[in-house]
Design a protein around this nucleic acid. Structure first.
Length: 568
RNA sequence: UGGGCGAUCGACUAAUGGUAGGUCAAGUGCCUUUGGAGCACUCAGUCCAGGUUCGAAUCCUGGUCGCCCAGCCA
């Protein structure tokens, strides 16, 4: 059993440069016998979105693969934007995605250590207090093509810097009056090295440290050292931080602490999707959506409410891979993995979104029976259930045409179709109201076709879903379309904003839907396929007797394509 | 026009000097008690120009194009 012929043809996801790099570090024992340690470092200033899911899968997934550990660390160095609400939602979302952290950390846990290291750098002549205003600092920084010039305060004595910095920390100075800067090189072609600010004065209340501090470290001064404190071996971040890497290393080298290494990868972008925390915040604050967890939002809480699953998201992330090129993934790719997942697990039910009464003239009045229906044809172990059938039913308005267009296989006068798992019916006549609107279709059924097959072997072109009018329950159905009309929501004319690309039809609410009675006890967190329609899930807005369903995704619709092609 | 990073089917991504392959999308057919799913097939790519080599997506040289950086945000 050792020949290559008997090896199982296991499916393996192709490698990527991150995995290769870590594997190489493990092989060469770059960190000795220490285990691989990563971290996921969100700033608690907003909700996590699908883009973060990629980072989470990489940070946790790769560590896991190499038998390492991952910390969840809140990068909470800016009290003005951060809130406990975000801290809570982030933890919930990471767990929902299926990951558990080794340690829960906060950059604010390291404020004392960071402060002491700042004193150390001042004593070493590597940092100074600068009294320049923010505007002056900008001017002194130079431009992309011109070098900056030294601040007049750059050569203060160590004693003076120490005194000033301690007084900064003690709250003797107002916001913005001065900053602590690293003394590096004002002529560096990398702007990040032109004496970057290490600390600024912010008399703000921090969500964890309260009013204990009035000076707060900048990202660059906090991140690498936080990594180092936690013995992070591989600190993965997105491409835009590549220019920060020299500074990341500079602090670690000057301080002589554990040499964590930063590695950058490409951020996830999706068509028709906005993944900017600032703009998502704007959508929420200005009421363009119903909240961070609006099912149209790309936030993890939004797509969770929409009915997306962690399994599908993880499969999607694995499939798009990781490189250093900036691209934009087709949203269809995400939707494919979600349909694939739900197709395997979602229980099938019959539900009519836009009802049209169908009366079976030759079915005995007052009679009812139950037909057996498979809960999931993809999974026989899901079993079957009994669904009530009677003389008056509802079918989908779209499933009947008085004048059928070419290739239309559904019900029309004189045509015979199958009611799923029930009987063959043939449309006979229609009933209209005084304004000429269709209100009922009358048909006849073939009693011999019970279960959905005719003993004479007769074939029908179409199978349709239905619900028994007398037994059906009603529900509100929320249909979602893309939130934006453009592939790139950030594409707009001068003087406009991304809001012009908002899709006015992104939410449609249906109130007439009729569902099979087994759905009466559906709970949020469950997933269903409404046969022939799409995947749906109960919304938390549901109340007893007042069900609300979200459409996660519609089923692929070949007929819609045919119709579109014919119309075009 | 300083610095950094990058460029493979329409999209994402493999091939690490040796047959340019996979997934999504698109299209065709088969099958079907979901016009779903599934199955089969098709379309379609190495940014450009030179060079090295028996052989280049890969190495070298020179271009072109794209993204990022001038917060006391992260």
């Amino acid at each position: 059993m050792t020949t290559s012929e008997t090896e199982s043809p296991e499916v393996r996801t192709p490698s990527n440069f991150l995995r290769d790099l870590i594997a190489e570090d493990v092989r060469t024992k770059k960190y000795g016998d220490a285990q691989i340690q990563t971290r996921f470092p969100p700033e608690p200033n907003g909700y996590l979105h699908i883009g973060h899911a990629k980072a989470i899968c990489l940070d946790f997934g790769l560590a896991d693969e190499f038998v390492g550990k991952t910390n969840l660390r809140f990068d909470d160095t800016n009290p003005e934007k951060e809130e406990q609400e975000y801290v809570d939602s982030i933890q919930k979302d990471v767990r929902w995605l299926g990951f558990e952290w080794e340690r829960l950390c906060y950059a604010s846990d390291y404020f004392v250590q960071l402060y002491e290291w700042a004193l150390q750098l001042i004593k070493a002549g590597k940092a100074y207090v600068d009294d320049l205003t923010a505007e002056e600092i900008r001017q002194y920084r130079g431009t992309l093509t011109e070098p900056g010039k030294d601040s007049p305060y750059r050569n203060r004595s160590v004693e003076e810097n120490l005194d000033l910095f301690v007084r900064m920390k003690n709250g003797e100075f107002p916001d913005g009056s001065c900053v602590l800067r690293a003394k590096i090189d004002m002529a560096s072609p990398n702007l990040n090295m032109r004496d970057p600010v290490m600390y600024r004065i912010l008399h703000a209340t921090h969500h964890r440290t309260g009013d204990e501090w009035c000076i707060y470290p900048m990202y660059d001064y906090a991140h690498g050292q936080s990594d180092s404190i936690e013995n992070i071996t591989h600190s993965m971040c997105t491409l835009e931080f590549a220019d920060h890497q020299p500074l990341y290393r500079w602090y670690i080298e000057q301080l002589g602490i554990f040499p964590s290494q930063q590695i950058e990868f490409d951020r996830l972008n999706l068509t028709y999707t906005l993944l900017s925390k600032r703009k998502l915040l704007q959508l929420v604050q200005e009421g363009h959506v119903r909240g961070w967890d609006d099912p149209r939002m790309p936030t993890l809480s939004g797509i969770r409410r929409r009915g997306f699953t962690p399994e599908a998201i993880r499969a999607f992330v694995a499939s798009v891979g990781v490189t250093r090129t900036n691209g934009i993934v087709d949203i269809e790719m995400l939707e494919h993995f979600q349909r694939d997942d739900l197709n395997r697990r979602a229980r099938r039910v019959l539900a009519v979104l836009r009802p049209l009464k169908l009366v079976i003239d030759n079915y005995p009045e007052g009679q009812e029976e139950f037909v057996e229906v498979a809960n999931n044809p993809e999974d026989p172990s899901a079993g079957t259930r009994q669904v009530p059938f009677s003389r008056e039913l509802y079918i989908e308005q779209d499933d009947f045409r008085e004048v059928p267009p070419p290739k239309y296989f559904r019900l029309s006068p004189g045509k015979e179709v199958r009611l799923r798992n029930a009987y063959f019916v043939t449309a006979q006549r229609v009933v209209k109201d005084e304004r000429g609107n269709l209100v009922e279709v009358h048909c006849t059924y073939d009693p011999a076709s019970r279960g959905g097959n005719s003993p004479d072997g007769r074939k029908v072109k179409s199978t349709m879903h239905w619900v028994s009018a007398a037994h059906a329950i009603s529900a509100e159905i929320r249909l979602y379309e893309k939130l934006f009309t453009k592939t790139d929501p950030g594409d707009f004319e001068e003087g406009e904003s991304f809001l012009v690309n908002l899709n006015p039809n992104s939410l449609e609410i249906l109130t007439e839907a009729r569902l099979e009675p087994s759905l009466a006890n559906a709970q949020p967190g469950e997933h269903f396929q409404f046969e022939r329609v799409g995947y749906f899930c109960p919304d938390p807005d549901s109340k007893p007797g007042e069900l609300v369903f979200n459409r996660t995704l519609p089923l692929k619709d070949t007929w819609a394509k045919i119709e579109k092609k014919a119309g075009a």
